[in-house]
Each structure stands twice: as structure tokens, then as C-alpha cells.
């Protein structure tokens, strides 16, 4: 029998190392070390208050917006191996490389076009032709182009909830980020819109890395390559999604995903 070639491990996009986070006196994340692989989807699951959104928000320094928050440890972003949490690194720069999609669609009170172009304008891009090209690419990548190409100047609020969320994804993609953070991106959507967002994530992972927080365990099982189960600010278990959902190692993980928690 010919020996199987050793599977090459996936490339790292980011790596949390002994990450700690405090909201004032509250120790929300405890020594979290977790890889995020390139062009893969990593899902974070766990009960409310376990720290998964807090963890996600560390990746684009969202917590910097409020005083009294403290980071410890680091999050390295590759290929340049820079610590995202370092005080020398500008959070705006971080957000150009790591963008975010939120739970509820939150388009700006502007036209569809201007929503998708927003990040590019912040970056200082003003040339109309260039903007149009980037906006079109982002809308195509967000699987929204065909539905909005004839009404780009209409207000974004004219769109349905699912379309608004895809517009937000287009806005997040327009700046050509390396890592996209999804914070329960479908919890406010109906099943069909949810399915289209999930399908979209699977297409997107060919170009970007994705980190997603979801309360919907079946969603994590459907879309992710890797899954981390968090509880009380700690990573209880991290593994291939396939393994987590068929044969997890830790009893706490099993209790949670089989609905025996509490």
C-alpha cells in the first residue's frame, strides 16, 4: 500500500494567544487561545453570556470605543504576524482588514450605492469609476447585485431584511478585508434569507476567512469547518465541526449541543 501523503495543515489567518478581556472589574474572557484558519469558517457557540461576542469583537477592536475595557494577551493576524491588540496598531487600520456584520441589518440612512461605498470613502477613495467598480464587485460577491443593479440610488431601507443584511455584507466586503466577523448574522432573518446568507458565507470563504458567532447550533454545523464551544469566558472545546457535532470530547460540549444544558 502506498503511504498517504500527510495532509497539509491549513494556513493560519489569525491566532488568539492567552487572550484575556475585562469589562471594568468583570473578567469576561479567560486565557483564550484559538486559531482562525485561512479561507475557512470558524464558528463560536455557547450559551448567552459565555463571551463569544466579546471574543469576536476583540478581533476588530470594537471594545476600544468604551472606556474601562482592558485587553490582555494577543491576537496575531497573518501573514504579517501583527498583534491586532497592540497599542501601536491603529484600530481603524485593523477594521480595514477585519470587517464585521452584525445581528440586525444596520444599513446607513443612505442610498444602496453609498452604503456599499461607505468604507471605501472612509479610506479616501473618491474616483467615481473606481468606486463603481468596487461597489459592483462587492454587491456581486454579496449575491445582491442582480436584485439592486437598477435601483442603486434608492434608499437602503427600501430593501427587505435579507437584502439589507446582504447589503451590510457587501459593505463589509467592499474594503476587501482578510477576515470577516459575523455576529449572529441571521438571527433576525427568515429561513429563506438565512439559507441565502449561509450559502453566501460558503462562497465567501474561498476569498476570505470567516469567524461567526451563532446561537443556532445547526447553523454552525451546516456552515463551519471548525467550531469552538465557549462557556463562562473559556474555550471548553475546539475541534473540527464534524467531530464536535458527532463525537465531542468534553461532556459539557455534548450536554450543550444535545440540549441538555442548564
Amino acid at each position: 500500500m502506498t503511504p498517504q501523503p500527510a495532509a497539509t495543515p491549513p494556513e493560519l489567518k489569525a491566532q488568539a494567544r492567552e487572550l484575556n478581556f475585562h469589562y471594568g472589574a468583570f473578567h469576561a474572557l479567560k486565557n483564550i487561545s484559538l486559531p482562525v484558519y485561512n479561507e475557512k469558517i470558524t464558528a463560536l457557540i455557547g450559551p448567552s453570556g459565555c463571551g463569544k461576542s466579546t471574543f469576536l469583537r476583540c478581533f476588530n477592536r470594537m471594545h476600544d470605543l468604551y472606556p474601562g475595557n482592558r485587553y490582555g494577551g494577543e491576537i496575531r493576524l497573518f501573514p504579517d504576524d501583527v498583534n491586532l491588540l497592540s497599542q501601536e496598531v491603529d484600530p481603524i487600520e485593523v477594521r480595514m482588514r477585519v470587517s464585521m456584520v452584525f445581528q440586525k441589518p444596520n444599513p446607513f440612512p443612505k442610498s444602496i450605492f453609498e452604503n456599499a461605498a461607505y468604507g471605501l470613502r472612509v479610506r479616501g477613495m473618491n474616483k467615481k469609476a473606481e468606486l463603481e467598480e468596487k461597489v459592483e464587485t462587492a454587491l456581486v460577491n454579496a449575491a445582491l447585485w442582480n436584485e439592486v443593479k437598477d435601483r442603486l440610488s434608492e434608499p437602503a431601507f427600501n430593501l427587505s431584511g435579507g437584502q439589507q443584511q446582504r447589503l451590510c455584507i457587501a459593505r463589509a466586503l467592499a474594503i476587501e478585508p482578510e477576515l470577516v466577523l459575523f455576529d449572529e448574522p441571521t438571527s433576525a432573518l427568515d429561513p429563506i434569507a438565512t439559507a441565502s446568507i449561509e450559502e453566501l458565507m460558503l462562497e465567501l470563504k474561498e476569498k476570505v476567512s470567516i469567524l461567526i458567532v451563532t446561537h443556532n447550533m445547526q447553523q454552525a454545523a451546516r456552515v463551519s469547518d471548525y467550531t469552538a464551544f465557549l462557556y463562562l469566558g473559556e474555550v471548553i472545546e475546539y475541534d473540527d465541526t464534524k467531530r464536535i457535532f458527532t463525537n465531542p470530547e468534553k461532556k459539557q460540549t455534548e450536554d450543550y449541543i444535545t440540549g441538555r444544558f442548564g
Binding site: F245, T246, I257
Partner: peptide, 10 residues
């Protein structure tokens, strides 16, 4: 109806 996982799925 239940989408069993892990031990229940097995």
C-alpha cells in the same frame, strides 16, 4: 423534528 447531535445522533 429534533436535529439530534453527538450522543443522541449516534
Amino acid at each position: 423534528r429534533r436535529q439530534p447531535a453527538a450522543r443522541d445522533l449516534r
